Amino acid sequence: MVKRCIICNQVLTKENDSPEHIFLKSLGDKDPKWGLLCKGCNNYLGTYIDQPFMKIFEPLYRTVSGKTEKVRMDFSDGHQYIVQIKNGVLDESFKPLAVNPIVEKNDTEFNAKFLNTDEAKKFMEKIKKRYEKKGKHVEQKLTSKMVDPKITGDKFSLTPSIDEFVFVLEVVKIQTEYLHSINYQVKNGSFLYGDLVFRPMVNHFDDAVATKRNLGIMKQWTWRMFENVIIPMGLTNTPIAMPLKQGYSEARVIDDITGKTGEKVEFTVINLMGLITIWVPVLTADNLVNLFGGAAMFLNPYDTREYE
């Protein structure tokens, strides 16, 4: 059977076939799939979708990477600190480091926030040496009582920032590649929106202007997807048939939800690293109509004629 790239549709050969980690290798995908993407499309999606996504997912990934990692986290007092963590467990022997704790009022006065007195004294010594290099003498003293709190895991929390554009494109990419990898059969002559979304994006590998324009058009669609699909449906509990596995990513298709038309609606349930579970309907016109009724028309990707 002839295999074609699911993005550009060219025939895949030994020379241009490329192994694709559907969930990204760094997100626990150790089983790359062949017969999905050509090298050019794989590289393009990696540059414009996977790499930006990993930047926003990196803090979460570090908490379960299996390695001892330093992670920026929010302390219960509202300030941020660098803490040491491994497999979701805080290393309480590591003294957290304050993130941007200093507000310089003038040459000699500072407002500063520290987690402990040792950290405050180190900062004061650093400031003293800096001024000595300039030939200046500075007197320092602690103007408020410093208390060394006990550092426990429940005092820290991680608040990831989500770029909705990057997040939606990665979710759609995962769904599209996963469904192709299991030979998902689209019903009633419909098509996967992911095929329509990504195909025009890779029309100009070497044309930065066209690439920027096409990505700009996609931002409007991803915003509608994020607000109407990902947020209200996406972040929820994992079904019993798909238990969370820390440090491992996977997906399943389920069809036990009834939509507005009374028909069953198919969902792809995507779990990333045992940290985030995303429910997203299989993105075909028929499936979205079954879920939303007539409102589904507002979730159609832009006509490909709008792309260069």
Rank of each mutant, 00 (worst) to 15 (best):
E119N: 07
N237F: 03
L169R: 03
N203P: 08
M201I: 11
G194F: 01
I151G: 04
M242H: 11
N183T: 04
L142I: 07
I127A: 15
L179H: 01
T159C: 12
D148P: 05
Y131A: 07
K121E: 09
E250C: 15
V166M: 05
N183K: 09
S249W: 10
I217N: 03
R224V: 11
G234A: 04
P200S: 00
K187A: 12
T211P: 02
F156P: 02
E164N: 12
K133C: 14
N214T: 01
L158G: 07
V253T: 01
I231Q: 09
T152E: 14
K134M: 08
L244A: 09
D163N: 13
E125R: 11
K212S: 10
V168K: 02
Y184G: 00
G247T: 04
M201G: 10
D206L: 09
V253F: 03
T152G: 15
R252Q: 11
K150Q: 15
G189F: 07
D163F: 04
L215M: 11
K245A: 05
V202Q: 02
E132S: 04
E177F: 10
V202S: 03
R252V: 08
V229T: 02
K133A: 14
K245T: 05
I174L: 01
W221C: 12
T236V: 11
T143N: 15
P149G: 00
E227N: 07
S249Q: 04
D206R: 05
A120H: 12
V172H: 01
W223R: 13
Q175S: 06
M124F: 13
K126P: 11
I231F: 08
W223L: 15
M218D: 13
R213C: 06
K129N: 12
K187I: 07
D206E: 06
K121Q: 12
W221K: 12
Q246A: 13
T211V: 10
K173C: 00
E164L: 11
V229I: 09
K173M: 00
I127M: 15
